[in-house]
Design a protein around this nucleic acid. Sequence first.
DNA 1: GATAAGTCATGGCA
DNA 2: CTGCCATGACTTAT
Length: 671
Amino acid sequence: MGEIVPFQDLNLTPVPAVGNGTAASTTGILKVPKIEPKLEPLDEGPIDAQPLQEQDDAYFQDPAPLNFYSDPQNTSLPQSAIVSAEQDNVYSEYNRISEIFRAAFAKRLEFGDDVTALDPDAGAIVPVNTENEVAPILVPRAQRKYAKRSSELVRVTDLQIEDKRYFREMVRSTRLLFDSFRVFAVAEEQKRLSAMGPYFRKPRGDLLAASVMRDRGLWINRDKRIVGSIPGIEIGDVFFFRMELCVLGMHGQAQAGIDYLPGSQSSNGQPIATSIIVSGGYEDDEDAGDEITYTGHGGQDKFGKHCVHQKLEGGNLAMERSMHYGIEVRVIRGFKYEGSISSKIYVYDGLYKIHHYWFDMGKSGFGVYKFKLSRIEGQEEMGSAILKFAGSLRARPLSVRPTGYIHLDISNRKEIVPVMVFNDIDNFGDPLYHEYLPKTVFPPHLCNSGGSGTGCECVSGCVDGCFCAMKNGGEFAYDQNGFLVRGKPLIFECGRFCKCPPSCRNRVSQRGLRNRMEVFRSRQTGWGVRSLDLIHAGSFVCEYTGVVLTREQAEIFAMSGDTLIYPSRFSNRWTEWGDLSRIYPDYVCPTYPALPPLDFAMDVSRMRNVACYMSHSTTPNVMVQFVLYDHNNLMFPHLMIFATENIPPLREISLDYGVADEVTGKLAICN
DNA sequence: GATAAGTCATGGCA
DNA sequence: CTGCCATGACTTAT
């Protein structure tokens, strides 16, 4: 080994604070006057009288099936919907937008294509706006020119709170784009492939999204090689693809488990490891959470069997050098996760230090390098530990948390999965005193407008181009997995006059809650909501229910001081989900059908559902999307809540309730 | 579970 | 110093 340059000579300088606080103007999760009902102590409430008991039946024990499309036997859904085709003309705008996307994808350049139409000054991708010409989505591989990964090794320290918000928002929007584009790209690529003939392999949305985003220069954290935590990424954040980690600068290797700055790029010629992925791919690994014995890479054949001794080179050498300099590494754990959209999930578990390493005989009889890592103290709880905890909580809530639960299902089996109530802070228990309302109640005349209507004829489920697809502008709002492709002013799901079964892909939000929820008491937000299941970005979470009041009724109610929800005041966060303007410069956010002013309010004072307890945030992880299915009045849509981020179990769900009223200074949600 | 298609960064070489 | 290309890697989906 050559001469060792001491740690302080390494070019490890803190990055100056970047954020200026303008990216996010207000705080994260706030204490707001959401629905603050009259909180009553539980002195003579039902809780003490009826101690909770662990429930063993399927309703409490079975995990919610994520792929509900494989359940055509489920006929419990109401077939009460009236949908007519009268709006067909207003969807021409949708059709036009869809055509742009389809054409863009169809015109993907292949290797060797002529690229003279591309403008070299505008980066890799250029829209060609002549008639009938659209931008290609991918530049031919041979033509791609990417900015190199930086070799400047830095550690980011002392971020101010506004800097943290800035970076969190940057990460959030990047992930949002990755997720929504991934969903979209798979759907479009499938259309393109099927137009060319039969195909056998589902396209990989992770690769498509990452590749297109790289073309557009949308990968982040490439201008610095960051040691330690990545600003904007928190312990416990969950990822579904290795490429997503590359896009975020978390871990730059598409497959390799050790990411490092090679010695050839390092200021002192020494390689430095920055992150590792622990996912059980090496038989000699031992993972005890805080302590890891990590096996170096190499020595395996293509089937994953060791066949030669490992060498102290590449990532292995970088690990040894990081140990020598006392440099921390990020640890990301990979799991198999039942019901996930991808085969594995990846969880950021925080920073570890390498304490020693040795050369050892592996179980295969070939030599391997082993590294002993231990977690740096004082960090947030490990994300992987929370995932495991949530898993046991789903099965045996009262054994895992003997105190705190005051109800195991406030829905009283009105939902498909339980909604529990947890309070280990005080003795308030008002969620127990409201009737649970699984679906919004509309004025009777809306849903009973005669026995005739129009709908699709898809007896075995809706297909591309069917009547209901056309009503949504020629494309369904949801992909084959039930994920929202992009937000729209309004979505038409199939309804009563459709011939399709309840399992139809166009009936996502009317199926109700799919994730086991917990209403919990919090010192910061009063009541809050968290899920025991991992929620995928783009998936339906729940409806925001209440009893619909017309304006006249609402005025009377408001005078009497009841709590009302005004749907028109929810901020238009749906425009962010699927906003591809950073990929398609001429992207137009869907604007049709133009909704009339939503001139109604919802009373949630007596009857409500789990959504009512969600906290407000200006950096929310869910949003409201308007949906129609059981009647046809554009003025009275359902308020459906969809996830805009991957929400790990037990992380608080937050919603943007809209801006504060300028006159009263109150947040808009309450009157 | 074997296999095929796909990607990245690295490192050697011209 | 740059560009090219082979290589290895705890992937992902069928």
